[in-house]
Each structure stands twice: as C-alpha cells, then as structure tokens.
Design a protein around this nucleic acid. Structure first.
Length: 568
RNA sequence: UGGGAGAUCGUUCAACGGUAGGACAGCAGACUCUGACUCUGCUUAUCGGGGUUCGAAUCCCUGUCUCCCAGCCA
C-alpha cells in the first residue's frame, strides 16, 4: 500500500479510468490507496460483458497494489437467488481473480444503511411518502415540466421517524409507503426529484430471509456500501452517469467517505446478446440448454465451449475502455481465443465427415505405429504414436474427383501426404448407384514412412486421417453464433418473432472418427483437431462416446478461395 | 421537447496544441508435414461549418448525428 508498483507505461495500453487512478495516486488522494469493487446483482449468470468490468476492477487493483472486493448487490430479493451467487463466485475465480476475504453483500450493511436513513430523516432530508407508485409517477413531471411536491413532503421529523419505524416493523402493506429523500422536484435530472430510498417489500431474501420487509433502493445502497468498504474508485457503466449527482448527494449529506464514481462503456459484441434479461429468456424458453449452453456468452457457457480464462482476459485488456457506445466485432474475441488455444491445445487427428480410403498395396493386417508430435512448436508437449493400417478414413472434403483450380488435396492421380504417415496416390474410386464416391483407392510409397520421401519430392498438400480399425467414434458439436444479426438493435426489432436466431446454431456431428489417444480425456481438455479447429471435451462426454465442442474453427483460407470461385 | 454523455480507418482503442499510431478485419506475398501458426508488405479515418494559433483530432463557437434518463429494477 505504501509503495504501489510504478505502472509500466509501455506494457499496458492506458485508458481514461486508469489515467484517473494514476493522477489520484500522484496527487496523494485517498492516501495513495486504490480500492475497487466488482458489484454484481445475483440475478443471473455472469457474461463476457461482466468480464470486462471484472478485468478492469481487479486489474486496476492488482496493477497499483490495491484491493478489489467482490460484493453482491442484493437489495432486491424478488430477483435474487443463491444459485446465482454461487455461479458468480465460481466464474470470477475461474477468470483468475481473487478477493481474499473480501467477499461482501449489500445485505451485510442493511442495518447501517437503515440507520443512515434515520439520520437523513433527522436532518430533515428524508420523509415518508404515502403516494402510490402511480401517484409518484404522476408527480414526477416530465422532461419539460418540473415535478410536483408530494403532499407528505413536509411531515415533521417526529412523524417521519415514527412512520419509518413502523414501516420496518411491518405495520404497512407492500407498496403502501416509501421513504424518499427531499431534494428537488424541479431538477432536470429525474434522479434528483425526491428519489425513493426504501420500499416495503415482503419477499424472502436469499440471505436475510424474512427479517426485513423494507429494502433500500440501488441508489441509496450502492454509494453507502462503497463508502463502508473504503472504495476509492467506484467504476460502473455509462447508464449510471445520471445517478452520479445522487450518489454524491447521499455520501455528502451523510458526511461519510466519498468514493469517486467513474462510468465507462459496457461491452457490446456482434452476433450475440449481452443482456441478462434476454439471456434469461433464452434459458426459460428452452432455446438453449441452460446458462452454460456452449452457445451462450455467459462465462459458464464459454468455459464449457472451451474458451480459456486467459483468452478472455487478454481480450478484455485489448478492447479498451472508453465512453463511446460501440460494438466490438466477434472476430476480435476469436483472435485472442485462437492465439491462446494455439499455444495450449494438443494436436490430434479427427475426421468429422469420414470417407473410406483403401491403400491397395499396404499389407493386409499390418499395423504401423507412427510417431506424431503433440505440438509443432512446443516439444515439451511430447509425442504420441498413431496406428496406421490398410483402411483409413479421411475428410470427405479432402477429396475431389474433379478438383477445382487451386485445390491441392487428394484427387485421382494426385499424390498427397497423410500427416505423420506416408505419401499416397489416388488410383481409383468406387461409387454407389447415385454416383457418389463411397471408397477411394490409393497406393502408398513405403519409402515415405514418417511423411517424407527420400528422393526429396514434394506434395502440395498434407491431410489428416484416422485408421478405420483403430479410430474411435465420437460426437462433435459445431456451433454458430446464436444471433444472425450483428447488432442488438436489429435483434430488438425482431424479438417477438425469434427470427434473429441462427437456425441450427448447433450441429451435432455423430459419425466422426478420432485417434484412440483421446479416450478417457477429462471434460474441458483442449485439443486442436488438426486442420479442423479447436475442440474441448464436453461434460457429457464418456469413455465410450467422447463428445467434443468446437470452441472455434481454424482460419480457413481455402474456404475463402473457394467461395471466391463460386460465382464464376 | 428538458437533462446527461459521446462522435478518429470497416470495427475498436491511442495520440492530452507539434509526423494521426496500434490491434482486429481485409488484401497481397513468404514460409510450412496443419491452405493452421509465424513473418513481410499494402489499403482505409479525425462528423459538417466557422474561428483562435506559426501549427488543431486536441482550444472556442455553431450545426448534425448517436446513446442514456420520467421503476417502489440494478
């Protein structure tokens, strides 16, 4: 705390929030302390948008030798559940952050917040209002007209105290009265037109149970919680800019530690939706299998899909923090994902759409054990042996009877390399009645064992394969973006139709063949299926039937070439 | 219509009165036992109009556009 590490100017791209922290440190504000917090409401699962906030808050604390608290903003019991609390704890940990013993709940402070409300009443700055929700709305005025003062605004301190005590005691029905702060009904900022501080609400709270029948509103709780915890920089999203005057009003009138609220832009990503409400809808309507469906942008969904915490952190550190309302392209996320997966994923050969290849001159019954590296750039990941035999499978797309221009893979008369194995040349094909190729016949060059020919001749393509006798069956789940439209605005317009969903956003490939070495791999194990994509073992996987999620496909420049050829 | 906040390559973030730069995407090439990875090169931007200044993305004025706000949600 006394000697915060000096920020490495070069290493990290700065942002305006970080600049504020640096300035405060330089000026000696807060006694050189940096203390942030991540304050989710436990009413849903965390998503990639929260990751941005988590990385910012925990990241700033870490960078400047400060602290970051995890705090649950649980002031509305009607929406909150322990299931969400548990998932949030798991997700923040998984992302790689630690709050030591500083996990708090707004509900920890209910008594203190209540006492502060009493203080404000005593100072004549808060009053009990008997107006209905409807009437309060009518009194609030409009953008152009000032609001009207509540007829209960000038109750005596004694009466307010008595009423507020009885509110707490449960003497009045839900919604019958509120405690409001006495600020300014003519303020151009609606938040200042005598905002409600407490509402009567008989809902079972996931932590405090039924001990309270009145709960503080966000505005009256948040700054106070920050203050209690000694937060220095209270970082939140842009929609709270209008709330800052109220945030400041409460801590000033209570005369308590005054954290600085700083607002930044929330993350928007193309082709997905980052709104708890909409994600909840997807779960409730059964459009996805749950919060951890691999198509969901939730941290649990992404984790199951095979995203790594490091990739998400790197992404968050690179998208920047500003106050502009933008939308980040999904390809940016995929870039950082691939970058990390490329380093970590062991290579293995898997044929998603198999077609049989028979090596006519390969001895019947012979099995060659060929050595393959687990990672081309990381020898420490070791090697494995891959069984090779007379009958193998290759990818249907790796053979063309009539190859288009620039197609380098197998076709009649052409020689290619089977990765880690041999050069093979296609000699003939067998077709069914429909004229579809069902079997490819090849000859192999025994001298090319291991993948290189002693005479130095080259092939233009290397393809992956799996021995028919040794390969094991597996399922591969291929995912598309859940949302076909790039932006949420377009989604909004079509929401009732659900037409914005990508049809068949999950394709379950059942006939795939994979190398035997993956048998029994634990859920979450990452692989690169060579030339196909990054996959991870799904939680539903069994040794008998491995199940893989495609995390993200490999970049595919041939697909681009081919696409460009189509219109001709 | 009142208040608040924004506007820089296709996207995103920098540049804090002194050469508009990075990342992603795109394009072209090199390399390659993954058409992957890696490497090289290239294309493209200061919302409009006025000012101030030797000099403006940056300061001033003005216009335009976008986002947020009228929950007893957070």
């Amino acid at each position: 705390m006394s000697t915060p590490p000096s920020p490495e100017k070069e290493a990290k791209p700065s942002n305006f929030v970080r600049d504020i922290v640096i300035q405060d440190l330089a000026s000696g504000k807060n006694g050189g302390r940096v203390h942030t917090r991540f304050p989710p409401e436990p009413n849903g699962y965390l998503h990639i948008g929260h990751a941005k906030s988590i990385c910012l808050n925990f990241g700033l604390a870490k960078e400047f030798g400060g602290k970051c608290n995890l705090r649950f903003d649980d002031t509305n019991p009607s929406k909150e559940e322990t299931e969400y609390v548990d998932s949030i704890i798991e997700d923040v940990r998984w992302l790689g952050f630690d709050w030591d013993d500083r996990m708090f709940y707004a509900s920890d402070y209910f008594e203190q917040i209540y006492q502060w409300a009493v203080d404000l009443i005593k100072k004549g700055k808060a009053y009990v209002c008997d107006l209905t929700a409807e009437q309060i709305r009518e009194h609030r005025g409009t953008t152009t007209e000032p609001g009207k003062e509540s007829p209960y605004r000038n109750r005596s301190v004694e009466e307010n105290l008595d009423l507020f005590t009885r509110m707490r005691a449960g003497e009045f029905p839900d919604g019958s009265r509120t405690l409001r702060s006495k600020i300014d009904m003519a303020s151009p900022n609606f938040n200042m037109r005598d905002p409600v501080m407490y509402r009567i609400l008989r809902a079972h709270h996931h932590r405090t149970g039924d001990t309270w029948c009145l709960y503080p509103m966000y505005d009256f709780a948040h700054g106070e919680c920050d203050s209690i915890e000694g937060i220095t920089h209270s970082i939140c999203t842009l929609e709270f800019e209008d709330h800052r005057p109220l945030y400041d009003w409460y801590v000033e009138n209570l005369d308590i530690h005054h954290p600085q609220q700083i607002e930044f832009d929330r993350l928007n990503l193309t082709n997905t939706v980052l709104s708890k409400r909409k994600l909840l809808l997807l779960v409730q309507k059964g459009i996805v299998s749950g919060w951890d469906d691999p198509r969901m942008p939730t941290l649990s969904g992404m984790r199951r899909r095979g995203y790594t915490a490091e990739a998400i952190r790197t992404f968050c550190g690179n998208i920047g923090v500003s106050k502009t309302n933008g939308i980040v392209e999904f390809s940016m996320l995929e870039h950082f994902l691939r970058e990390d997966l490329n380093k970590k994923a062991a290579r293995v050969m898997t044929v998603l759409d198999p077609i049989k290849v028979i090596i006519d001159n390969f001895p019947d019954g012979q099995v060659d054990q060929l050595e393959a590296v687990n990672h081309p750039d990381d020898p420490s990941m070791g090697t494995r042996t891959v069984p090779f035999s007379k009958v193998i499978y290759i990818e249907r797309d790796d053979f063309r009877e009539d190859p288009p221009k620039q197609y380098f893979r197998l076709s009649p008369g052409r020689e290619v390399r089977l990765r880690y194995a041999y050069f093979v040349t296609c000699t003939s094909v067998v077709k069914n009645e429909a004229g579809e190729v069902t079997e490819i016949h090849c000859t192999y060059d025994p001298a090319s064992r291991g993948g290189n020919s002693p005479d130095g001749r080259k092939v233009k393509s290397t393809i992956h394969w799996v021995s028919a006798e040794h390969g094991i069956d597996c399922e591969a789940r291929l995912y598309e973006n859940l949302f076909r439209e790039a932006s949420e605005d377009e989604v909004e317009a079509q929401e009732t139709e659900w037409a914005w969903l990508t049809p068949n956003s999950m394709i379950n490939v059942t006939g795939a063949k994979v190398e035997p070495c993956v048998k029994g791999a634990a859920a979450g194990t990452l692989y690169q299926f060579e030339r196909v994509g990054y996959f991870c073992v799904d939680k539903t996987s069994t040794p008998e039937m491995p199940v893989f999620n495609r995390t993200v496909a490999l970049r595919d420049s041939w697909a681009k070439i081919e696409k460009g050829q189509k219109p001709k």
